[in-house]
Design a protein around this nucleic acid. Sequence first.
DNA 1: ATTTTAGTTGAAATCAATTTCATAACATGT
DNA 2: ACATGTTATGAAATTGATTTCAACTAAAAT
Lengths: 340, 340
Amino acid sequence: MNIRHIAKEAGVSVATVSRVLNHPEHVAPKTREKIEKIIEEAEYTPNWFARGLNFNKTGTIGLMIPHILNSVHMEIAKGVEDVAHRKEYIALMCNAERDAAKERRYLEQLIKRRVDGIVLICSSLGEKDFKMLEEQNIPVVLIGDHKDGLGLHVVSIDCRQAAEKAVSHLLEAGHERIAMIYGFEPEVENGHKVEGYKTALEKRNLPFREEYLRTVENSIEGGYLGAKKLAELEEPPQAIFASSDYIAFGVMDALKDKNLKIPEDIAVMGFDNVRMSNLVEPKLTTIEVPLHKLGVYGARLLFDLIEGEEDGKEAKTILLQHKIKIRKSCGHKERIGEMF
Amino acid sequence: MNIRHIAKEAGVSVATVSRVLNHPEHVAPKTREKIEKIIEEAEYTPNWFARGLNFNKTGTIGLMIPHILNSVHMEIAKGVEDVAHRKEYIALMCNAERDAAKERRYLEQLIKRRVDGIVLICSSLGEKDFKMLEEQNIPVVLIGDHKDGLGLHVVSIDCRQAAEKAVSHLLEAGHERIAMIYGFEPEVENGHKVEGYKTALEKRNLPFREEYLRTVENSIEGGYLGAKKLAELEEPPQAIFASSDYIAFGVMDALKDKNLKIPEDIAVMGFDNVRMSNLVEPKLTTIEVPLHKLGVYGARLLFDLIEGEEDGKEAKTILLQHKIKIRKSCGHKERIGEMF
DNA sequence: ATTTTAGTTGAAATCAATTTCATAACATGT
DNA sequence: ACATGTTATGAAATTGATTTCAACTAAAAT
């Protein structure tokens, strides 16, 4: 079933059928109606490939997700999908699985498939990859923390500042020995959150202790392992700042296993404010990151780039607002009140 | 940069270049090497659409997900993605958002894009849609509970039996007044889990009480609302069986708000065994569903269908094993022990 | 020495659309 | 009545590959 069948059926040329599909205003009303009826009856849909061959537009964007089971990434992804769907775009989902090689393979696939643009969520790609993308003239937007000076369009939050805020909160709650468990993602960040942690300590003239900074896999399991090590230290910390809620969940599990009470014995601070952070016991104090909004803004920027609304010559950085979400895991409000 | 550039550069015809790409064994070694080098240098990639026009294969499958933020669905999706990626396929991610209209729109898009096959996770599509799919000759596999007699390829677990097992466990733990909160998903299930619940009661000659069966949205919020209503009943239940872990999380939150102790005052049983069910307080007793495996088997079946390994004429149903995962939310083991 | 065969290669057809350009028919203005 | 403009349509070119078929070469078999 192709355009020629329709044309023959209608007793017109393929050009006319094509016009009905693409520029219906250039076809006489009665001819158009007749052809439309035949198209309807035959349930004819123009061949996707033939169409793409002419337009060289796919109505498809690539969506690179570091870890499909992490709801942080998926909330961002949903923001992207919401915008894309409204624009009648579909996203090719790429689960990079925190594996730079797999991410690169996916990237090559996306280029092959000539997607109209790519959203990279917390990507581990390097400068070579970005250069290739630029050569291919495919618009790219990066969402999430990233290396500085990449010359890319970025939508993120100020992670340095957010981390400093988090640690300051812990300090204000009366904790002095504050450890950080840092979920490392390959090549993603050069440690903005760690910088914020150090800055907060410095500002109070507190020493930075090497043994209080642990780098783990960014997962529940990573947090569990990291917290266990910290709890076994000769002088264990009074509070743990986790660089993600998922890590914090693992931390809390480990501390419970060690029969430590949260926050009485040890405080825990998260980062992201995923849905579950409000359901663990005690409810997790964390940094509220506008995850969905991050995705929405990222997608909007990408479509501006695709549609040429934005020339894209100079890298645009959009920083969204974050807030601290105070719940129960860092000590009682009264105690915090005393500090002021 | 197209195949003709390469051909001209190499001083050969486009046919030869095409052969290097597709049937290199039919090209003289030195010609081949020369062309390969030129392809390499020019970073030439054959046009995706032109290729598709000939092959009519896309290397793409559709992946319909009812709710992208629900880790049950995403764990299944990951299973699918794992298999697809190994086969060098990419999945077009469709977030149906529990909205039959949106799901149908996505389905049309998938057909337009001539995907090689479709995996439907817990789909809300109806028979008309499936008929259309069959006409289009696109292989489809449905993962998850579903209406009976759909004539589709299905990978699932025996939800009726699993629910019965769950409720029986509650009964064996000494609870008599057992309520069920059922996460309705439009058109998905005709209540296999509810059937199992009723069967378990019947087998012990316990009455089915209308007010103990609540249908809610399948989400944390739905569970919260449902449990609140149940707790406010004149004679509240002694146990709540939630049809998903997410609902159970909401249930637990509501019960805590009502100052009810779990499991002393009221027991809670989940379904799915998502990662977080092991991290809430108390740890949730639940039905362990092989989510990832469900995705893997679904994808394998789909690829068998695509590759013609499976003729697909008669609908195949694969039922995977489930287990009950006993943790802390339904009462102590000792107490259960007493019952035997 | 001649026929057969296998191995290479290119011209042209094909895939299914879109689009340009030319032409015909008809309406409008002078 | 004639020049001009407008509208509707089709033939053919175009998009970028793959593939068939024919032709040619060189090696092997007779």
